[in-house]
Design a protein around this nucleic acid. Structure first.
Lengths: 223, 223
DNA sequence: CCAAAAGTGTTGGGGCTACACCCATGT
DNA sequence: ACATGGGTGTAGCCCCAACACTTTTGG
């Protein structure tokens, strides 16, 4: 690399795009905004923004999300960098995509001038840029991580029933799981503990509530 | 994002750094160059370079490697993007790191004015920038992929013995594997076939040579 | 004939899958 | 009492891990 980096190499803008997933009514949803300016006016896209000179990539992600959702304690990881020459029609923009997960009880959007919504990933409209591809990459990553990490904790509220946990796996993986085997496996892995509380007010036997012992990602053979 | 991307956002240079691994004498080696200019004169670093305006990231990787090694048919994947503000003392440089693998019979370096060598990953010298961290990330990725893909093909020559294949797994994973179980598993996965040739000229029983049926990466439960 | 690495089967145990009924509550 | 989801155990099978000796060649 050259000793001095000339202006010739500062042609690209650097952006982040964030794929925020959550679970709504047993369906995986992604956070989308609607562009208010050309060249994609009216078309939906992922929340994102240009990196500023004094910001790390993670800082940019937090800044971009701050006006939209409460990202406190949110799980976040770098997903992939999309650098095709033609991916942004305005000029060369290289985008570092991030994957973020928030629990289903923290999905409330802040009041905003932006037009922002949760959209089911299985029913996406046409999106700006290469954002359809980015979301596809994110879904693949999430599915993969479900089977060798405890990442699912990042989609669950503080307390939850084992049935709810199982449904979460099922609707992301796209296939059903045997109830007894699932419970044996989860309990044996020793990742959750009873909270002592139960679900009340339903016309059936009240379910035991559980919580994760640790809310940090570890690698472990799951399903 | 703004409609027009002003010069204010074009502060960063974009670079690629490539972690090229190969196997030499049953040890994982990485390709390192020695810097000939400040601020890291004399210090080793990964081969890399600044992305040009008309290049995709992959094109930059190929251009950077072309004078050094024959990368024809080389396996390559994007590894991670390193974007800390202070990672390059000269100015803001965001680097997209790539992981590349080449077979042990294709490691010959092109004659070059650069000072380039294969260095064992377990015995790295101090490196420039955050390149030690990048190599660490690459080793972790490689180990992980060994267990759920057939990626090892990218480190093997066209023909090889099963013992050699096993040794390759062992020295990357860092633990030994039972010979009979290993051979059962590999043959059952149906990834390799006998080439018909045998090793000649050794003072012991000649080993059968095998080749991979397909030299492209697939996901499959390995070890 | 000796040294060196190649090649080959079996057995036991643990984990996964498949499967059906009783329980506790609200109405 | 009934409707609804919660909660539980077992048996067969498959896969994995552990383990040692014979074979083939060159010198």
């Amino acid at each position: 690399m050259p000793t001095v980096i000339t202006q010739e190499f500062r042609f690209a803008a650097l952006a982040v795009d964030v794929v925020v997933f959550t679970l709504i009514k047993d369906t995986l949803h992604v956070l989308l905004t609607r562009n208010i300016k050309e060249p994609f006016k009216g078309i939906r896209s992922l929340p994102g923004g240009l990196v500023k000179e004094s910001e790390s990539l993670e800082m940019t992600v937090k800044r971009v999300l701050a006006p939209i959702i409460d990202g406190t304690g949110m799980y976040m990881e770098q997903l992939y960098t999309f650098g095709n020459v033609e991916r942004d029609p305005r000029s060369r923009v290289v985008s570092v995509a991030y994957l973020a997960l928030i629990p289903s009880d923290a999905i409330h959007l802040f009041p905003s001038t932006y037009d922002i919504d949760w959209i089911p990933v299985n029913n996406l409209p046409a999106l700006a840029y290469d954002h359809t591809e980015i979301i596809g990459t994110a879904v693949t990553r999430l599915k993969g991580k479900l089977s060798y990490t405890n990442i699912i904790f990042a989609l669950m509220p503080e307390e939850f029933t084992l049935t709810k946990l199982q449904q979460t796996y099922e609707c992301i993986l796209g296939h059903s799981i045997d109830k007894r085997n699932f419970r044996k496996k989860i309990l044996q892995l020793d990742l959750v503990e009873e909270s002592g509380n139960t679900v009340k007010g339903e016309p059936n036997r009240p379910a035991q509530l559980y919580r994760f012992k640790k809310r940090e990602m570890i690698e472990i053979e799951m399903l």
